[in-house]
């Protein structure tokens, strides 16, 4: 029972991180209809920025976090402006290839700067462990969960209540009609990218605090998993990303503990395949009728 609770906690911990990253994927997909493969690399960039801020410049933790978030948000917007915006009317597959190219570009630039060797991420979360029902909950897990849930609530309020949030929803519904209503589509897309990248930066810091070895290729695996989570929940749907993230994290952690420590990736991706076979557009998707 204790083992089960511990694994469940681990699952919720990693699931919260997946959910944060999946939010970025899902928002960008909803608004630009683009699988942003470079999103995983933003996590990597976030981890490295934090690493430089603390290990090289010895800045205080809070300031480093702010710098990291701002840097990643800026990077997201720059990528969008440079690589995706000129292709907005191009075929989907060209956009996809560009996104993959972006991801390779970031990986190779960071490999050239920092070498391919892993670096140890400094400990930034100093919260003591708590014992609940004989299960030790580490400070990392508490902080991760609280930060993730806090950000999800803020994001939800932002998307539902503010004017910018409304314009984001409008653009993802029908960008042409939104433009006719006087919404600045370019600005909305930029804001979406910056929010998604900021969430990825936070996720990067949280992930690296739990698994403190960072290298230039760390982003691709987490990125693909988080993307899987977004799809399981129904891509383009914000609550779906959160649900998918937690489901995926818990499945991954439980199958690692109880089924096989080697096959867990296969189980994770089989979950994706089974979900799509029975719910072809994700768990929370609404059925859309196809019109001729």
């Amino acid at each position: 029972m204790e083992l089960f609770l511990m694994q469940l906690l681990n699952g919720i911990n990693i699931g919260a991180i997946y959910a944060l990253i999946a939010l970025g994927y899902t928002m960008v997909y909803g608004i630009a209809k683009l699988i942003n493969f470079a999103h995983g690399e933003i996590i990597m960039v976030g981890s490295y920025t934090m690493f430089i801020c603390i290990a090289t410049f010895d800045l205080p933790v809070v300031l480093s976090i702010i710098i990291t978030i701002l840097a990643c948000a800026l990077l997201g917007v720059v990528i969008e402006k440079l690589a995706y915006k000129p292709l907005r009317n191009a075929s989907r597959i060209s956009l996809l290839i560009t996104a993959i190219g972006m991801s390779y570009l970031l990986q190779s630039v960071f490999q050239l700067i920092f070498s391919a060797n892993s670096k140890t991420f400094p400990q930034v979360i100093n919260v003591s462990n708590v014992e609940i029902f004989n299960v030790t909950v580490s400070g990392n897990q508490i902080v991760t969960l609280f930060v993730a849930i806090f950000l999800m609530i803020v994001l939800d309020l932002f998307v539902r209540k503010t004017k910018t949030g409304k314009s984001m929803r409008a653009v993802s519904e029908d960008s042409g009609a939104a433009q006719l209503m006087g919404i600045n589509v370019n600005r909305t897309i930029s804001i979406t990218f910056s929010i998604g990248s900021a969430l990825a930066a936070v996720a990067g810091i949280l992930y690296s605090s739990s698994y403190p070895l960072i290298n230039p290729f760390m982003g691709s695996t987490i990125g693909i998993k988080a993307f899987t989570a977004a799809v399981i929940g129904g891509i383009g749907i914000i609550p779906g990303a959160v649900l998918g993230g937690f489901i995926l994290g818990i499945i991954e952690s439980l199958s690692k503990a109880y089924i096989s420590s080697q096959l867990y990736d296969a189980i994770v991706f089989s979950t994706l395949i089974l979900t799509l076979v029975f719910k072809p557009s994700g768990l929370l998707a609404k059925h859309k009728k196809e019109k001729v």
Partner: peptide, 11 residues
Amino acid sequence: YRTLMYAVTLI
């Protein structure tokens, strides 16, 4: 610089 050039070429 191979991967870098590859990526730049793609984009």
